[in-house]
Nucleic acid binder design. Structure first.
Lengths: 200, 200
DNA sequence: CGTTTTACTGACTGTGTACTCAGTGAAAAG
DNA sequence: CTTTTCACTGAGTACACAGTCAGTAAAACG
C-alpha cells in the first residue's frame, strides 16, 4: 500500500473513530458533519469524499458496533445453559457500550427506515435467543405458561426505557449497573414457576 | 366581550386545536410553525402574537392534555379497589389519546428540560398510585415481596416501549389495544403471590 | 524532470426553520 | 366623523446544516 492509499485509509478510520466519540456524547441527530470534520482536523468536504452522506456514516458505525455485540452474544449463548446467566451477561455487555446503546434507544424512532430496520433486525436475533430459552423452560416445567414473546418484550421494553432515560436516572456511570439487580429480580420472578405449581 | 376580544380568542383556540391535530400526526419536533399557521388559515406571524414561541405552544397543549388524564385517573383510583382493574382502566385511558402519548413517548428525550420535567412529574404522580397499590398488596400478602418501584418501572417501561414503536407494531389502530391482554397478563403474573406462598 | 493523478480544501449553495416588524384595515373610543 | 387602538399580515432576517465543486499541492508515474 503506497503513501496515498495509507493516508486515505488513516483519514477514513480517524473520521469513523472521531464520529463515534461525538455521536456517543451528543447523539447521532445532534452531531453535525462540520463538528465531526473539525474534531477529526480535516475540511468539511473531506468527510463526503469518504462517506456519500451522513446516514451512511452512521450506518457504518452502527453496523460495526452491532456486529460486535451479536458476535459476543452468540459466544455467550453457546456457553450459557441458564437463562439467568444469559441475562446477566447480556446486561453486562450492554453496560460496556452503554453510551451508544442509550443514544440508539432514544433516537431509533427518528432514524431513516433502512437504518431502523437494520437495528431492529439485529435486536430481533438477540430477542430470539431469549425467546427460545423461555420456551425451553416452559416445556421443562421450570417456567410458567406465559406467552414467551410478551415476556421478552417486558424485558426489552424495560431495558430500553432505562437506556432512553439514562440521563434522568443517573448523573454519571451506568444506569444498567444501577438497576441490574432489580431487572434480573423482576424478570426471573415473572418467569419462575413457583413450587407446587410445576407444569405437567 | 367585544368583537375584537372574541376574534382574538377564537384565533387562539383555533391555533391550539389545529396545532394539536398536526402534532398528533407528525410529532411536535417535525411540525413547523408555518404548517400550523397555514392549517389554521392565519399568517405565520399571527402564531407568535398568541404564543411567545413554539415551545410554549407545545407546553400549553400538553399541559391541557395531561391535566385531563390526571383528573381522569384520580377518579379511576377512587373507584378502583383492585390493581388489575386500575391497570385496565389506565390502559383504556391511554388508548383514547394514544396518538399523542405515542408522540410523547418517542420525543420526550428531545424536549427542552422544562417540558420534560413537567411531563415526568405528571407521570410520577400516576406511578405513585400504582406504587401504593402494589405496596398494599404486598403487606396484605396477596403480592410477592418485590421492590414495588421496580415492578412499576417494568410496567411503565413496557407501555412506553410499545407506544414509542407503535408504527412498527401496528399499521393502524391501537398498539395498546393489541397488546393490552399480554401486558395485563404479564404484570399480574409478576405480582400475584402463588398459592401456598402467601406472605405471613 | 515534466505530466498525471488524487486526497484534500473551504468557500459556497440550497434548503428549512423560528421568529420579527413595519404596514394595513377594521373595530372601538371620543 | 375623526382619531386611536389593535389583531392580523407576510415579506424579510438570522441562523443552522448537509452536501458541492473549482482549486491546490503533493505523490505517483513514465
Amino acid at each position: 500500500m503506497n503513501k496515498r492509499q495509507l493516508q486515505k485509509q488513516n483519514t477514513r478510520l480517524n473520521l469513523l473513530q472521531v464520529a463515534r466519540q461525538q455521536f456517543v456524547v451528543q447523539g447521532f441527530l445532534n452531531t453535525t458533519t462540520s463538528q465531526i470534520a473539525a474534531a477529526a482536523k480535516v475540511a468539511h468536504g473531506t468527510l463526503f469524499l469518504h462517506f456519500p452522506n451522513k446516514n451512511m456514516l452512521i450506518l457504518e458505525i452502527l453496523d460495526t458496533e452491532l456486529n460486535e455485540i451479536n458476535a459476543q452474544i452468540r459466544k455467550v449463548i453457546a456457553g450459557a445453559g441458564d437463562l439467568e446467566q444469559m441475562l446477566v451477561q447480556y446486561l453486562e455487555m450492554l453496560q460496556e457500550d452503554e453510551d451508544i446503546f442509550s443514544v440508539i434507544a432514544r433516537e431509533l424512532p427518528f432514524y431513516p427506515a433502512e437504518l431502523r430496520r437494520m437495528i431492529l433486525f439485529r435486536e430481533s436475533i438477540i430477542r430470539s435467543y431469549f425467546h427460545k430459552m423461555i420456551e425451553q423452560g416452559i416445556t421443562a416445567g421450570r417456567y410458567r405458561r406465559l406467552d414467551p414473546a410478551a415476556a421478552v418484550t417486558f424485558l426489552f421494553g424495560t431495558i430500553n426505557y432505562y437506556l432512553s432515560l439514562k440521563t434522568i436516572y443517573v448523573k454519571e456511570g451506568s444506569v444498567l449497573k444501577k438497576f441490574q439487580h432489580s431487572i434480573e429480580q423482576c424478570f426471573m420472578a415473572l418467569l419462575i414457576c413457583p413450587k407446587g405449581e410445576e407444569n405437567e
